[in-house]
Computed example of a mutant assay.
Amino acid sequence: MAEQRRSQRPASGKPSGGRPTGAKKTSGGKPASGGRSAKSGERSQRWSPDAERSDRRDSRSGRPPAKGAPKSGAKGGARSGGKPGDRPGRKNDWKRPADKQADRTAEQAVYDGPDLPESITGAELDRSVTGQLKGLPEKLAARVARHLAAAGMLVDEDPETAYQHTLAARARAPRLAVVREACGEAAYAAGHYAEALAELRAAKRMNGATAYLPIMADCHRALGKPQEALKLAKSPSVANFAPEPKAEMTIVEAGARRDLGQLDAALRTLELAPLMSKSRSSWVVRLRYAYADTLEAAGRDQDALMWFHRTHAIDADELTDADERADALEKRLG
């Protein structure tokens, strides 16, 4: 889970984990911090084919044409190199025996994506996501929905395959914010931080959502750019975040300070957060854990022990290893 792994390693610069938005959870996993805001779907642009894309994709199936195939706008017959009466841009490989068909290009392989189990129909997605797919042709929307649903189901156990599913969805509907968002979050889970940052930036441009900022900041940390993470942490919109995404950004900001060797500043950042909240929500657990971990890094072992115990006291879902960290500290302190 993204939050658990990030809160346990706030100084590592190797964040990971997250769930592509929209797919219903199929396990106990938590959505990635900074996921799609409730209203982002209302602001996203709908995608539809245009003339520029028609040159790159078969006009009927939407697949990338085979290498060397005529563009879909070309004339038929002798001008396209085919027989008189051939339909423009028609692909005939499907008629050939399997052993004589051309190999799939890398672009076509990405477009195909991983195999889709028949049990995944796309109905697994939230309505807010399927609503954004209605601007696509019916068959195309169904295929995109299935890839997004598959990604959501696989992201915790097989994030790389989940990422490949989102790439297949993006190849079909690159102008949908929810698709770029899912692609970004899956890339983040799979450890492709530069790609995740690019996709989430694209989604933010499309729908104006700011809820991606914590993950984007965490990507900057993973790419060795803590100063960029701090810039995002100081964005004006962060002040209006709900408690959970605000806590996520606080953890990332403190981690960036640690990346820069600024332990005192990291502690001050965390001390301004509601560490003593009476809530037992996961964001409070992660805040307390990050504070305890930073205290230990600063050499304040007794204070760290106290906060690991306070973390464990509210960590009913065992999001962290606070109990193990507390035991190790007690043994070291004698």
Rank of each mutant, 00 (worst) to 15 (best):
G208K: 09
A69Q: 10
L176V: 12
R127M: 11
A38F: 07
S61L: 03
T130M: 09
E330T: 11
A74T: 13
M206H: 07
T26Q: 09
L136M: 06
S54W: 04
V155G: 12
E330G: 07
G224V: 04
E195H: 09
A304L: 10
A177S: 11
R36E: 10
E330C: 01
A169V: 01
Q132W: 04
N207T: 03
D264N: 11
D317Q: 06
A194M: 07
G22I: 00
A222M: 11
A217I: 04
A196Y: 09
K14T: 05
L319P: 00
R205G: 05
M153Q: 15
T311Q: 02
A74L: 08
L197C: 06
A189L: 04
W283F: 08
P65W: 02
I251H: 01
A23P: 07
A239Y: 02
D323W: 13
P49L: 06
G81C: 12
L223N: 05
N240E: 14
D327G: 05
D115P: 06
N92H: 09
R9Q: 04
K246A: 13
S281E: 13
L287D: 00
K71F: 08
P159C: 07
K25R: 15
A171R: 09
A51G: 14
A171L: 02
G208Q: 11
G17Y: 01
Q227L: 07
Q101G: 07
G255I: 03
K91H: 13
S237E: 09
K24T: 12
D126G: 15
A78D: 07
L136R: 10
I215R: 15
A316Y: 08
A290I: 04
A102E: 09
S33E: 15
A266C: 01
G77P: 11
D327M: 08
P243Y: 02
A168V: 04
L260I: 03
P174K: 00
G41W: 04
D55M: 08
